[in-house]
Amino acid sequence: MLIVCPSCSSRYELDAAKLGPAGRKVRCASCQTLWHVDPAQENFPEAPSAAETQALLNEELERASEIDAQISAVASEHTDTVEPPPPPPRKPGKGKPSPAKGAKTGQSHPRRAATFVALGLGGAVLLGLLVWQRNLAVRGAPQLAIVFEKLGLPINIRGLSFSAVESGLVEDGQNRFLVVEGDVTNISKGRAPMPPIEVAVKDAAGQTLYTWTTEAPRPSLEPAELVRFRARLASPPEAGKSVLVRFTSAKPKGLASAH
């Protein structure tokens, strides 16, 4: 079924079977609006037809052709052949100048400029592709993540986002527990697998005192679907001042050893 955000009109595909008889709350990946989706609703916008999809594809192909034509036109302006200057008049008693050498020298500068222009355009196009598909670029070369972070470009390979994360101490008789909970939203346009969640306890200086891993509340999330997670640690470090929550590929092994 197709759902539409009531705030910004963003569209998402959602499996109606995942809603259940009472419906479910979902969060918009674009504007973070939270609303309830009722499985009995019938006024959903229709999905685009095959003809509309093909028209959009043709429009994107035309734009790509126009960009290629503009790049070719700019490159051709710098690769026009420049006629070499006429040889100097022959003087008595002097050696005969070499026309071939003079012609080669006269043509080297425009060719070199055209090469620099072509390299510059190629680099600009490559950089644009890397920024546009930065998530795919980081999957292939993880070291690029640092570069994109310094440029202020967000990287989210998993397509999952934490929000409303809270932590607090709970005492149960003689026992003392640290409880950490929050929301996880699928901000991608497809189903996203949900890996285990790692929680780190940090001191006032930001040093990690203790980490542990907990199972995800659900194996995967549909687009724009939101789920609540909860993790608990018995006898947390006394010097703990904050927690850091992130996804990890490690499997939960109970309580992790202290750092």
Rank of each mutant, 00 (worst) to 15 (best):
M1Y: 03
I3K: 02
S10E: 13
R11V: 14
Y12H: 13
K18G: 12
K25P: 06
R27P: 10
A29W: 06
S30T: 14
S30Y: 09
C31A: 07
Q32T: 14
W35M: 10
V37W: 11
D38A: 12
A40T: 13
A51G: 15
Q54S: 12
Q54H: 14
N58C: 11
E60K: 11
D68N: 11
Q70E: 08
S72L: 07
S72Q: 15
A73S: 10
A73C: 07
E77K: 15
E77P: 15
H78S: 14
V82Y: 01
P84G: 05
P85D: 13
P85L: 05
P88T: 01
P88N: 04
P88H: 00
P89T: 12
G93S: 03
K94F: 02
S98R: 12
A100M: 08
A103V: 00
R111P: 10
V117A: 09
A118H: 13
L119R: 11
G123E: 12
A124L: 14
G128D: 03
L129V: 00
L130F: 00
L130Y: 02
V131W: 02
W132C: 04
W132M: 10
A141K: 12
P142H: 03
I146F: 07
V147K: 04
E149Q: 01
E149F: 01
K150I: 08
L153S: 02
N156E: 03
R158C: 07
R158D: 12
L160V: 05
S161V: 09
S161N: 11
E171V: 06
L178F: 05
L178W: 01
V179L: 03
V184R: 02
I187Q: 00
R191L: 08
P193T: 04
V199H: 04
V199L: 08
A200I: 13
K202A: 07
A204V: 14
A204P: 03
A205E: 11
Y210K: 04
T213V: 08
A216V: 06
P217V: 12
R218S: 10
P219N: 03
P219Y: 11
E225P: 07
L226F: 03
R228K: 11
R228H: 10
R230N: 13
R230F: 05
A234C: 04
A234S: 07
E238M: 03
E238F: 05
A239L: 07
S242P: 00
V243E: 09
L244S: 11
V245F: 05
S249R: 06
S249T: 06
A250W: 09
P252N: 05
P252M: 01
H259V: 15
